[in-house]
């Protein structure tokens, strides 16, 4: 059983428009397609896992009408829910995709409601109870205001105490504290800043250097994506490079691609695959999700087609 954590969930609204331009006056843009669904990175992973038949529990903080909508939609996906309730309304996020420029969406994310210490105590109590019944915890996304930046570290440490594998997918200031707890795998989200552990990511070597810094804390695998060089997976003693044929890709919606990647990895690890092979499959799942309007690609034939286009090469010894 997998447990996903989304401390800052959202209801995602995605609009596809033909034109959007600020001309200095009020402008109405009609969407020719819309998609809305429960979101937040951990929740997206849960939806992916449920779509491939991996039983999972979604935990996080929800509130108000939006919170109830998220919970109901996850139940309809067959996901087990165990949320902590807050007084404030859960946020909504908006993505606008302009026709012909779907590769570069406009994403507007709210910061999320302020979280009290009382709520965090309640969440931690529920989290500790859930650790008795899962084999892997996925911690994904940003933290809402009021939650200490080191909170992922605490959650990873609690899981490790009970021998449970952890996967972290977060960005910016949350990466370093999470890495310090030594999760099984960490994938820093570098959409906002091309920088990890104070290391600017400009080429393959800088990615490897940033990865090594995280391995020094006890993290077992680091996965870093880079548009120019492909994805790089780093362990204590090896480095792998994954290259995909992105030229043939028809981009319809990039939202959720990174979460499909994590979902694909977890799915394959549950099937007993090695970490590099699981990452290769995860990359295919992420790329397939880009080709569909929904956040998650539910057609495994599309994932398998992408898998054919991805090469996995061992670059060498990560200790050198």
């Amino acid at each position: 059983m997998i447990l996903t954590i989304t401390l800052n969930p959202a209801y995602d609204l995605i609009y596809w428009v033909k034109e959007i331009e600020q001309k200095g006056e009020t402008q109405l843009s009609r969407a020719f397609r819309t998609h809305s669904s429960a979101g937040g990175k951990g929740i997206n992973v849960s939806i992916y896992l449920a779509s491939v038949g991996v039983e999972n529990i979604a935990m996080g903080l929800i509130g108000g009408h939006t919170g109830r909508t998220i919970k109901r939609s996850l139940r309809e996906e067959g996901i087990i829910t165990n949320f902590t309730w807050i007084s404030e309304e859960t946020r909504s996020n908006v993505a606008i995709l302009k026709k012909g420029q779907e590769d570069n969406p406009i994403e507007i994310n709210s910061t999320g409601p302020e979280i009290s210490e009382r709520v965090l105590d309640q969440f931690m109590e529920q989290y500790e109870t859930m650790l008795h019944r899962v084999s892997c915890v996925v911690l994904s996304g940003s933290l809402p205001p009021g939650v200490p930046k080191s909170y992922y570290r605490k959650l990873v440490e609690k899981a490790k105490e009970t021998g449970i594998r952890t996967v972290v997918n977060t960005g910016g200031e949350y990466v370093r504290p999470a890495a310090k707890a030594g999760p099984f795998l960490i994938k820093p989200d570098i959409r906002e800043r091309k920088e990890v552990m104070d290391q600017a990511l400009t080429n393959s070597q800088s990615i490897i250097d940033a990865g090594r810094k995280m391995l020094d804390f006890g993290t077992e695998f680091v996965l870093l994506s880079h548009g120019l060089t492909g994805d790089i997976l780093i362990s204590k003693d090896k480095i792998w490079e994954l290259k995909a044929n992105r030229e043939e890709l028809t981009v319809r919606n990039r939202v959720g691609a990174g979460d499909s990647l994590i979902g694909g990895i977890i799915h394959q690890l549950e099937e007993g695959k090695s970490v590099p092979e699981a990452v290769r499959y995860g990359l295919a799942a992420g790329m397939a999700s880009v080709e569909v309007y929904e956040k998650i690609c539910r057609d495994t034939s599309l994932v398998r087609a992408q898998l054919e286009e991805i090469t996995l090469n061992e670059l060498g010894d990560s200790t050198k």
Partner: peptide
């Protein structure tokens, strides 16, 4: 319904009322 919403035995009635109210 695969929902694990529950209250711990040591939690207060106040916490229970908050949970029932928010979760409807």
């Amino acid at each position: 319904t695969r929902d694990l919403t529950a209250v711990r035995e040591n939690q207060s009635l106040k916490a229970l009322i908050f949970l029932l109210e928010k979760s409807e």
